[in-house]
Amino acid sequence: MPRFFQRRPVRIIGIALIVAVLLIASLALGSLKHYSPQNYIQLILDGLRAGSIYALMAMGFVVVYSVTGIINFAQGEFVMLGAMICLSVDAMNLPLSPALKMIAAIAAGVLLTTGIGILMERLTIYPARRSSAVTLIIITIGVTITLRAAALLIWGADPHVLPAFTTLALEDRIFRFGGVMIQAQSLWIWATLAVILILLYVFLQRTLIGKALRACAVNRRAAQLMGINPSRMSMLAFALAAALGAVGGIVLGPVTRPIYDMGVMLGLRGFVAAIIGGLVSVPGVVVGGLLLGVIENLAAGVTDPAFKSVVSFIILIAILLLRPQGILGGGEKSTEEL
């Protein structure tokens, strides 16, 4: 079956068939609940919102994996740290207007989390850089547990709140189009994803250091011969991944209630999104993230919200069984390219 599934036409027909069956099934289930088109649009929009966060996380997975060959399981903790640091700074008694305070809080969340990412690489990955990838991956799991425990000590076990960006209050502004509702925060999330994508594109394609990062991903030994220091690039990759995670956590903050262990399920979904995208291409994993968000939300919507987390596990298992190189990854062998 797996080899059969790799032949391109078969694969396309296969994917189309699966999608069609799932669509019909969800329509059938939805009609049991008397869903109107607006209900579906709402589900898809909410899915795209969650998917944007998965996409941001998946980019973090890709950057680290391409450059170092490590799956960084602490990616979900970066999201948590971004949100937590941001809401803590925002809750401080600073002599600033609410808007300025929010901006300061966002900057603090991103910068401090980036710093934690760099520290993580220097303190745990760098000393073990000559070890196998498996060892390094287990190290990232250790870091994950440490960060989560530290968060529990600092922020406690209760969920926190972060005000919405538009109103700077807990109540967000809501736009209504027919029967469809869009929170202003959703627009912030989509805009953030778009801006981050453009920035990342410019960084990787147009700057020398971005090109060096890509070179390291394509051929580490050759990059070293060009004078590129792979351990510096590894540090840069972790910094980028932490920043991407923090941004995701901060824009997500107002629509969830940030809690110390939010990184667990988010990390898993970001990982699934990265796997859907084939783990090596940024555009691929962005599509993967959005797709995962929509599928998950539709499936939960037409059945039961409790199904939500099951969906990503099912997708993960299905992909690992059928196409370990990802659904959107290249046909036979995907060359490494960010």
Partner: peptide, 21 residues
Amino acid sequence: PERRQIFSTMSVMDNLILGAY
């Protein structure tokens, strides 16, 4: 290097630029 080891997914220009990194 042996067997060239160019950065195959990057452009000719980027390869040359990286040589001067």
